[in-house]
């Protein structure tokens, strides 16, 4: 399979989950495991253009697929606008859900460049965060969406020091 542009050819046990393949075999530990029932979304990656939960995906079934993980989102060291949005709008605290949250947000904005708040909230419904109450995650995605459209991001909630 191809992961973040690099092709890998490995033999794995059929029962190896994609998330464990990424983490243990390729050392890409940015993709996290937070549950066992496909609920938390910490393991979200993009396979062939679609966001999926890599904990509910056999590595063998991804043979030949194009996989993108959080490590592959920035280009040439430049943060992706979604990453920038999370930083600028305090869209993360402990950071554990963040890679999955970023991947879902990237996938959303690739399909819908101008989502409303409700659309953003539904798009990240499959990604649980216990720290932020999602408030600033929504702001982060709004920031990124504006940036990607070439617009000025909405002002932050807090006062900007002059």
């Amino acid at each position: 399979m191809t992961v973040n542009g690099t092709t890998y050819d490995r033999d794995v046990e059929p029962r190896t989950l994609l998330v464990h393949f990424l983490r243990e075999e390729l050392g890409l530990t940015g993709t996290h495991v937070g549950c066992d029932t496909s609920y938390c979304g910490a393991c979200t990656v993009i396979v062939d253009g679609r966001s999926v939960k890599s904990c509910t995906y056999l590595a063998v079934a991804a043979d030949g697929a194009d996989v993108r993980t959080v490590e592959g989102v920035a280009t040439d060291g430049e943060l992706h606008p979604v990453q920038e949005g999370f930083w600028e709008r305090h869209g993360l605290q402990c950071g554990f859900c963040t890679p999955g949250m970023i991947m879902s947000s990237v996938a959303l904005l690739e399909q819908n460049p101008d989502p409303g708040e409700g659309e953003i909230r539904h798009a990240i419904e499959g990604n649980l965060c216990r720290c932020t109450g999602y408030h600033n995650i929504v702001r982060a995605v709004e920031y990124a969406a504006a940036k990607m459209r070439g617009e000025e991001p909405p002002a932050p909630d807090w006062e900007v020091p002059s």
């Binding site: 059929p14 989950l17 066992d36 029932t37 496909s38 904990c55 509910t56 995906y57 063998v60 079934a61």
Partner: peptide, 24 residues
């Protein structure tokens, strides 16, 4: 049989279901 695996794999991960063979 496995298609998307979204129903099957969680059951297998919890070992509530353990097929001998997965037909993808």
């Amino acid at each position: 049989v496995m298609a998307g695996g979204m129903s099957l794999l969680p059951l297998m991960k919890m070992r509530l279901l353990s097929p001998a063979t997965i037909v993808d």
